[in-house]
């Protein structure tokens, strides 16, 4: 699903150049649940941004579902993001004046799905994350866990190839974190490829594969025995 070959990225800081990613190689197959770990400054956020087409690598190859991601202009990047990727952010990033269902329906709007189908699909995914009865509530009326569920529903609604989650439990307490991870595992069980960036080992243990980044290189890449989140959830 994802093929990364010799990926380099540096940032220019005044006269200095900061080499953040120093030749990453990674291959992720369909249906994997991968945790990307690393301390701050390890380059994991940069890596995720490149995967998410929010940023572009200097050199190297990035294939997403067989499509080379290279020299994208903004319009094309927007189309690819919409088609291939679903984002889940630490700070949820819901649009605060839109209700839950409107937030979930937004990527479908950019896919030019008609209104009726948008509503139907959005409701379906809200139901999937267990928030059907909260469909008409504004984000400000939802708890953190509920907001993240809405964000997950929104990421799923576009039916992307890959879900990219950036510290998705970073703003949540551990109980809620496990509930969210349970949901992520369920979605993964259905065959969705998911990448989770985290620095919490217990969250990483709930994935099937852990990739350790340090100083811009992959230092460890192991398949692990998945810890089911459901055992922590009553």
């Amino acid at each position: 699903m994802i093929e990364i070959k010799d990926l380099h990225k540096s940032y220019r800081m005044g006269s200095n150049s900061l080499h953040v990613l120093k030749g990453l190689n990674l291959s992720i197959k369909e249906g994997e649940l991968v945790a990307i770990m690393g301390s701050s400054g390890s380059g994991k956020s940069t890596f995720l941004n490149i995967l998410g087409m929010l940023d572009e690598a200097d050199t190297g190859e990035y294939l997403l579902d067989g499509v080379p991601i290279k020299n994208l202009n903004e319009t094309k990047a927007a189309k690819y993001r919409n088609k291939f990727l679903g984002f889940i952010f630490q700070s949820f990033n819901l649009i605060n004046y839109k209700t839950a269902i409107e937030n979930v329906a937004l990527p479908l709007y950019y896919q030019k799905v008609n209104r009726k189908d948008r509503q139907e699909k959005a409701l379906k995914y809200l139901e999937k994350v267990g928030l059907k009865q909260w469909a008409d509530h504004l984000p400000s009326e939802l708890s953190g866990g509920q907001k993240q569920r809405v964000a997950i529903a929104r990421a799923l609604a576009a039916e992307p190839k890959v879900l990219l989650a950036d510290e998705l439990t970073g703003a949540l307490d551990s109980k809620t974190s496990y509930e969210i991870m349970e949901l992520v595992q369920e979605i993964n069980d259905e065959g969705k490829t998911i990448l989770v960036v985290t620095h919490e080992p217990d969250i990483a243990q709930m994935c099937k594969r852990i990739v350790h980044l340090k100083d811009g290189v992959i230092v460890e890449d192991t398949f692990v025995e998945q810890v089911r989140a459901s055992q922590y959830v009553q």
Partner: peptide, 13 residues
Amino acid sequence: KELGIRKALGATP
């Protein structure tokens, strides 16, 4: 921020 979210969700410039 809102426009950034929209872009992440696939809004073209």
